[in-house]
């Protein structure tokens, strides 16, 4: 009893653990299905490795959507932030790193540190606009997204900045685990602990549930929001470093589809778009589901049509999947509500 009570209040939160279990089943199902549909292709060590370096890119960004959505907001500027951070890092590497020859560790370190500084500044600007100025998060981050992307264009003049200096992150591994995966795993631990075992995390959920009550309960809502958007910016800049490390270039319009993808991940992972509920475990499972789907669908489309248009099919599939998941959530919630008495007023007082 004690155990289950605790699990309910903390790990699964409002949606309950059934959602997580269902997601786990879906992930396994997708995995098995593609293994059978694509014999000798999907369930191979090479494919596992290739998937492992792909998902951290958007998986990391998804944390930025998770925490902002938990507060009842959203950060639509994450891709802009990531690219701007990557461009700053790339600039440092190309300007200070010399051409061709490996840059000194100091320059590499400086570049890797510059990204989070830029990301933090971007995030803090969002936080100020949302928390202090009071602009709706959708509009504020649409505006800053345009601003950050615009600045990227202004800095680069349009084309990508190429540098292979961070390839050791993009291609490297520790004990056989790709570095991007390690970064993702570190963020999983960080956000699990932050959201479940700190006062800040607690306050994020409370603020997302009812901002007015949060203010009246003495939660410093300005500070919580500032910190949330700052964290989102920081996370986005980490994703930016991974972009740069994997693609060996930084450009203003990289990963434009990631906004949709990360929103999809959050919704699939059970994060409520009105705020206040959602968990890291759901998010991780959703990331895995999407990576399996993405790779599997790509392989399948290539096998079936062989045309390059297959990459566009994914774009279609993500949109369709987002709508499908929300429609399914609608029905499952309907069913839950039907199983309960319609309202508290309707039942006689205890």
């Amino acid at each position: 009893m004690e155990q289950t009570a605790k699990r309910k209040t903390f790990a699964g939160f409002a949606r309950g653990d059934s959602h997580i279990l269902r997601l786990l089943a879906i992930a396994i199902l997708i995995f098995i299905a593609f293994s059978f549909l694509l014999p000798g292709k999907f369930f191979t060590i090479r494919n596992m490795q290739s998937m492992a370096v792909q998902f951290p890119e958007f998986g990391i960004l998804a944390f930025a959507i998770l925490i902002t959505m938990l507060t009842g907001g959203i950060d639509l500027s994450i891709v802009g932030t990531a690219n701007l951070s990557a461009i700053f890092a790339a600039l440092i590497l190309t300007r200070l790193g010399g051409d061709g020859a490996p840059a000194s560790p100091a320059v590499v370190a400086l570049a890797i540190l510059a990204a989070p500084v830029v990301g933090s500044l971007c995030g803090l600007l969002n936080g100020l606009l949302v928390a202090r100025v009071g602009i709706t998060p959708i509009l504020a981050t649409l505006g800053t997204g345009s601003l950050f992307t615009g600045l990227s264009y202004v800095i680069t003049g349009g084309p990508a900045i190429t540098t292979t200096q961070l390839a050791f992150i993009g291609n490297g591994s520790v004990l056989g685990i790709p570095i991007p995966v390690i970064v993702f795993a570190a963020l999983v631990v960080f956000f699990s602990v932050t959201l479940n075992r700190t006062a800040y995390g607690f306050n994020v959920y409370m603020l997302g549930t009812n901002a007015t009550a949060a203010r009246f309960s003495g939660i410093n809502t300005t500070r919580v929001l500032l910190r949330t958007y700052w964290l989102a910016g920081l996370v986005a800049s980490i994703a930016g470093v991974i972009f740069l490390a994997r693609a060996n270039s930084a450009k203003p319009d990289y990963g434009a589809s990631f906004v949709l993808l990360t929103v999809l991940i959050a919704i699939l992972g059970g994060v409520s778009y009105t705020g206040g509920s959602g968990s890291v475990s759901g998010l991780v499972l959703a990331v895995l589901c999407l990576q399996f789907l993405s790779t599997g669908l790509n392989m399948l489309m290539l096998e079936l049509s062989g045309s390059s248009a297959a990459i566009f099919f994914r774009q279609f599939a993500w949109g369709a999947l987002l709508l499908l998941v929300m429609a399914l959530n609608y029905y499952s919630q309907k069913r839950r509500e039907r199983n309960r008495a319609p309202s508290q007023e309707a039942t006689p007082a205890a």
Binding site: L260, V263, Y273, F312, R314, F316, G319, A320, L322
Partner: peptide, 19 residues
């Protein structure tokens, strides 16, 4: 509406480009 139209935007554009 934001999330629905984000989804349909991707759907419509993706469908246009691949089909």
């Amino acid at each position: 509406t934001l999330i629905v139209t984000l989804g349909t935007m991707s759907m419509f554009h993706g469908f246009l480009l691949f089909a």
